[in-house]
Design a protein around this nucleic acid. Structure first.
Lengths: 157, 157
DNA sequence: CTAAGATAGTCTCATTTGCAACCATCTAAA
DNA sequence: TTTAGATGGTTGCAAATGAGACTATCTTAG
């Protein structure tokens, strides 16, 4: 039989780890604030950027399907956590931004999530964390996952 | 606004990276062999272990829901890639093992997947790969994701 | 200007998945 | 024993998701 250890296989480990970490965080945004993952990603993207952005942008940079984003946008609009205005320049698109209520939620949620992240990574030394993040970055770049500031993939230029 | 960068947020990066890596691998087991992820996990687990194991074991150590495993087992039985025999000691449970056909598929698939994994990690130096794997291991252990040889979580003792 | 193709976003449909009820069997305690 | 609870596995159902069609709008080539 071929020598193979599923538990040493990096793709498997990444999947399992990502699922577990997501579950650990979901207590915060899901149980506490009733957000699912796509909704949380929209809040996070809008909160991170000062200016408004389109659903398309969010879809691209979070690598989430546009139909999933569309549904989550509708849900967030219903809860008045975000606002949507027609784009003057392109009337197919909308500008999305956090509402005051959405900003408040964002401000409250972020510290909790960062704290969870710290917990999860607290098993690594500072140097190990740095190296780990650097390795993630390298893999992301080699898989072409990195976005520029304008939300286009780097190779789109 | 709270200082927060979604693209520096490790849980998000893990999710995105895991999805992307899975997609890169699925060409091999999905397109080429018609296996979905749960099916591939079963094949991998059975191939890795010489002796038979239960659906429960596979479910636990791959962290995949038992109903998902149950359905995938049925599909693999239909394709005669695995075999199932009643367990003498516990007649609720079944012993699962690869069939000859399943073993052949396993032997063919594994080198392809390992090669893909190598490709994905080829952006790291040997030392970086080692450190990366070590960091994954530490996080897994701190999240209690590690299984013993007998398929029980370490803290189950 | 017009036509052809690209793009933003929504919607429907099929697939996947988790949850939970369920059955059969096992274990332990009275 | 008998009975209550735990466990292995299956199945029905509902929620989540991606694919892809579709509308409306934009862009570009002629």
């Amino acid at each position: 039989m071929a020598k193979f250890d599923l538990f040493q296989f990096v793709p498997f480990r990444l999947n399992r780890l990502a699922a577990e970490v997501s579950a650990a965080l979901s207590d915060e945004y899901q149980v506490r604030y009733g957000l699912d993952i796509p909704e949380w990603r929209i809040i996070a993207t809008l909160g991170f950027r000062d200016d408004a952005c389109s659903a398309q942008f969010i879809s691209q940079c979070t690598r989430t399907h546009k139909s999933t984003i569309s549904r989550a946008v509708t849900a967030l609009l219903d809860r008045a956590l975000i606002e949507r205005v027609e784009n003057e320049d392109d009337r197919r698109a909308f500008e999305l931004r956090l509402s005051a209520k959405g900003k408040a939620l964002y401000e409250e949620l972020i510290p909790r999530l960062l704290s969870k992240e710290r917990d999860i990574l607290s098993c690594l030394t500072a140097q190990e964390r740095k190296d780990f993040a650097a390795a993630l970055g390298k893999i992301e770049r080699s898989l072409d996952l990195v976005q520029t500031r304008h939300g286009q993939k780097a190779d789109a230029y």
